[in-house]
Design a protein around this nucleic acid. Structure first.
Length: 274
DNA sequence: GCGACAG
DNA sequence: ATCTTGTCGC
């Protein structure tokens, strides 16, 4: 894995003012335009809503491992907690194959504070990335990117620190305003999240992410949407397109689900042994 | 003072 | 995030 850019590494011992100041620097160097080499259509399956069959692979015919070698490496990041320690994991896939997993167990320094998540979890996550030997083309984070008071959420902060394309996927909305009412929408539906007065350095009404109804049931609308925003080197629309491709019939993208499961597994091992 | 608030 | 059993449905 490429080394972190030291200037942006989140320091949990910083003062609140220093943390917010660093976030403004992160936001200033982040780019929210597509800046990556891979083909977005190659990150995962997306049912073609049009004609016919059961074709779930966008670029691969099932059972042709050789074609996978050209697919981008997509990583999922997640954490589990045990007392005052964080289990941080990175799971990397190429196509449908997990090619590497890394994890670390780290002491937590500060509590969770909305808007400062990267200072609680960023260090542990970077430690896990340091264990990684491959270089992912895209990283999917559990949390916000641009949808953040200073447009420097976890996905943006770590994306900038590692200078790697990243997207944030949150189960709840931190700030900003959905353009349309989000309740009871059909699967596949999306609406932009607009910057409001809570978002710094953004024109009010600027699109900073999407609410995406990644999963819905026919009968009762009981599923909440997810909130997708660019981390770094990905545009708003592209971030949501990518996440939609990665969801594959579930509410959360596959990289996140794999990372979540692996984090639980490591946590279980740590809890019962060394 | 009131309400909101990723993981 | 975490503490937690069963349960309804495809």
């Amino acid at each position: 894995m490429n080394p972190a850019r030291p200037a942006f590494v989140p320091d949990a011992s910083a003062t609140r003012e220093e943390m917010e100041s660093l976030q403004r620097e992160v936001a200033a160097v982040a780019t929210w335009a597509d800046e990556f080499d891979f083909d977005p259509a190659a990150v995962g399956p997306l049912r073609d809503s049009g004609s016919g069959g059961d074709s779930r692979q966008a670029t691969l015919s099932p059972g042709s491992p050789s074609a996978e070698s050209s697919l981008p490496l997509v990583a999922g990041v997640d954490q589990a907690f045990l007392d005052d320690r964080a289990v941080s994991v990175v799971v990397v896939r190429r196509g449908g194959t997990v090619i590497e997993r890394a994890h670390t167990v780290t002491d937590l320094e500060i509590p969770y504070i909305p808007g400062l998540l990267a200072f609680r979890e960023g260090g542990p996550i970077l430690a896990a990335f340091a264990e990684l030997t491959c270089d992912p083309d895209l990283v999917v984070f559990d949390g916000s990117g641009r949808i953040h008071y200073r447009q420097a959420g976890l996905a943006t902060h770590i994306g900038v620190t590692l200078d790697i394309p990243s997207v944030g996927v949150a189960k709840g909305l931190l700030c900003g305003t959905p353009e349309a009412d989000v309740d009871g929408r059909p699967e596949g539906w999306r609406t932009p999240i607009l910057a409001d007065d809570d978002v710094e350095n953004a024109e009010p009404g600027e699109r900073i992410g999407h609410a995406l109804q990644s999963r819905q049931y026919d009968s009762r609308p009981i599923v909440n949407p997810i909130y997708v925003s660019p981390g770094h080197r990905v545009a708003v629309d592209t971030a949501t397109d990518l996440v939609e491709r990665l969801c594959d019939g579930y509410k959360l993208p596959e990289p996140t689900r794999l990372a979540d499961a692996y984090a639980d597994e490591v946590k279980r091992d740590v809890a019962s042994g060394g």
